[in-house]
Design a binder for these strands. Structure first.
Lengths: 252, 252
DNA sequence: CGAATAGTGTCTCTTAGACACTATCAG
DNA sequence: CTGATAGTGTCTAAGAGACACTATTCG
């Protein structure tokens, strides 16, 4: 049955319907390590197991549902106030997971979202967020449902997007040094980058970063000169792109 | 409400649920022009308007639903028989559209798919596919619901994927000439490519194409030597990529 | 001071793209 | 023959990456 005839004979009770949820893969960088926001499940199925934060979609857009879930689990408030932290979160749809057997109880179609955030405060006890915590992505295993797969897809997407978009700036403060930006790439890609070449390359991409004219208050923790500060530029795509070191196994 | 507490207190009738559909953006190339498969709606809403083929998701995966819809609308049979045409269709999820007001009757969440197909036969009358037809993408306007937006997103994705994946080979026969491949790029990108440089570039990308050792039966329609034939190689990503001519307006 | 970091200079290799040119084939 | 196409050669400019080097700052 196609959509047209479905609609023509429409009666909500005549057709099977599914529950629609959103799940959010929220990524941030803490102490040089890429971390993901998880919650511990308080009920069956998968009681006690970790899972991605998510929930039922209400009378709202899918994007709104994802932002709401993220806000609830982090204890931050969304909205027009342009919160210095949550207001800067980048949110995008990842993909949708809807295998009939992905939830043991009923058909649940989940729209997964990917969120990039600068350093967020630890979720505060006493709120909805009490059950949420940040975990290094390497330690996020054995998640509930198909969330291992969702996380894997999210990480692959994140690594790709750093190459050709300026999204790395979503992980740092509004003013940042080139070294901080390089640490973002290192954390997400899991490999060190040559500092000198990275520096020159970032500055050579039009619209990636622009100078604030300021300089960092102090040098590095283990020595080194005070670095210049930059803010995100107006480019939406990086050209030329910052390609990862080629790995044959990604190609075939 | 998050997913955990939703599941714990689960009763299907207790919660609002949505209808889940798949919509398919099927692209092919006919006479050098990129075309999309459309159906004419036979019922309200949007009676008589063109729309993307799609339909309700049954007890199957989302991917299966999309393939089934495509098969029904083209009159071809899917399945393990590896049909010379439908078996070679590349199908991937595009994104999910679920704004509360996208359908006037009820909440419908639609998972959109993108299909790349070699030249398919005209849909045959007397079947479900009688209402389906191929339309050049430039002429596919004023579609029902939010299908204009879905089509626009699909075209953007298709143009991107040609750059860094070997998907162009999904638009041609199993054996093809470099010239035919170039016409695929020209049709999707909407701009001519330099024949000589394109030729050398395609052959320089490891795993993109491999020679069959054969030669085309005859030269071009308007003259020219017989071209060598190639088949798709084993690369899943093109490295180096075949980048489109840079356009400043795509970057900012 | 010694170690680490910011930032720059330089060299090599690869790639993109412009242009030119020959060979082959249809009409 | 004429015109169009297949395929190759060559040159230039740009970018990636290796390596070297200086200057600055923390401990």
């Amino acid at each position: 049955m196609d959509e047209a005839s479905f609609l023509a004979s429409y009666n909500p009770r005549d057709y099977p319907s599914a529950a629609v949820t959103v799940d959010v893969v929220a990524l941030t960088i803490r102490e040089g390590t890429l971390c993901v926001l998880l919650v511990e499940r308080g009920q069956a199925p998968h009681l006690g197991q970790n899972a991605l934060p998510g929930g039922f979609v209400r009378d709202e857009t899918l994007d709104e549902a994802a932002l709401r879930e993220l806000a609830e689990e982090t204890g931050l408030t969304p909205g027009a106030e342009q919160d210095e932290t949550l207001g800067r979160v980048h949110l995008e749809q990842l993909r949708t997971y809807g295998n009939p057997d992905r939830d043991p109880r009923m058909r649940i179609v989940s729209v997964a979202y990917l969120a990039f955030a600068p350093h967020l405060p630890e979720p505060v006890a006493g709120t909805d967020a009490a059950r949420a915590f940040w975990v290094p992505v390497d330690e996020a295993k054995d998640l509930a449902f198909d969330h291992d797969q969702i996380l894997a897809d999210a990480l692959e997407r994140a690594r790709d997007k750093l190459e050709y978009t300026p999204l790395a700036t979503a992980f740092v403060a509004t003013a940042f040094t080139i070294g901080e930006l390089r640490q973002v790439y290192a954390a997400v890609w899991g490999e060190e980058l040559h500092a000198g070449n990275f520096h020159r390359k970032v500055l050579s991409v039009p619209g990636f970063v622009e100078s604030t004219g300021e300089t960092a208050a102090r040098g590095g923790e283990r020595g080194g000169p005070k670095a210049r500060l930059y803010r995100a530029g107006d480019a939406r795509l990086l050209h030329p792109a910052l390609l990862r070191p080629t790995r044959e196994d990604r190609i075939r």
